[in-house]
């Protein structure tokens, strides 16, 4: 993680040394949706242009994301239960289905304020492709009541438990991630020099922490973190007011 931050810092330092005119400030409003779930995001991004033709742009920013899901399932989150590996290769490891338990709530609402990493590439005049991902930040939102849906739920526990969004967010890898994190993959068309329109795909983690730890399978699994993974269609508008 530290090595990555050092490399990113070097890139931005180099970019800054090339001159202040090689950077852009982007403001963006995004809406994402798929059946039963909805997300909005407002962000500010500081992009640095790289290369002779300045096609590659890397940057950082801040994003406020809201997520609303109706009757969505939240499943066991910690990688120690969900994946056969807990290192950086978690993303390629198999999911351990027998360790996955489910809780659900009528209306999930999470907000997260995260620092972002952003990258985009100019593929043609007025056209960019890119991606961005939340790195770390905080989450908040109203408390919710969750129903536990599991055939291995241990006795002497309440079948309905309250929970709140996990407060701290951190991007690691795949199921190692903690909290609520947003990411987008997009194509942008610059309709004018200052206004761009984006379309693409949003992949978002929304995570709740139950107020009591829940015990499953005769105490083999004791967990309070549950995650919903939302894939949604994305539309957005980007403003570049200072260029």
């Amino acid at each position: 993680m530290c090595k990555i931050l050092i490399v990113v810092n070097l890139i931005f330092t180099f970019g800054c040394a090339m001159g202040q005119d090689r950077m852009d400030h982007l403001f963006d409003l995004a809406v994402s949706a798929s059946p039963g779930q909805f997300s909005t995001a407002a962000s500010w991004v500081h992009m640095h242009r790289f290369g002779k033709k300045e096609r590659l742009q890397l940057g950082y920013g801040v994003r406020l994301t809201s997520f609303v899901g109706a009757n969505k399932f939240y499943t066991t989150a910690p990688a120690e239960y969900t994946s056969t590996r807990q290192d950086i290769a978690t993303i390629f490891s198999e999911t351990i289905d027998s360790n996955i338990d489910t809780i659900t709530t009528a209306t999930a609402i999470t907000y997260c304020l995260n620092a972002t990493f952003n990258a985009q590439y100019r593929i043609a005049p007025r056209w960019d492709i890119g991606l961005n991902i939340d790195i770390t930040g905080v989450s908040f939102g109203p408390q919710r009541q969750f129903n536990i849906i599991s055939s291995s739920f241990d006795a002497n526990q309440q079948p309905v438990e309250s929970g709140s969004p996990t407060h701290f967010n951190l991007l690691l890898t795949s199921d190692n991630d903690i909290g609520s994190l947003n990411s987008e993959f997009f194509v942008r068309f610059w309709a004018t020099p200052k206004i761009g329109l984006r379309g693409g795909y949003t992949f978002l983690f929304s995570e709740y922490r139950t107020h009591q730890e829940l015990s499953f399978d005769n105490g083999r699994i004791v967990n309070d973190r549950f995650r919903h993974k939302a894939g949604m269609a994305l539309v957005a508008i980007t403003f570049k007011p200072f260029n």
Partner: peptide, 9 residues
């Protein structure tokens, strides 16, 4: 079989 819902129980 338990006080919570699951298809299996």
């Amino acid at each position: 079989k338990s006080n919570n819902y699951s298809q299996a129980n």
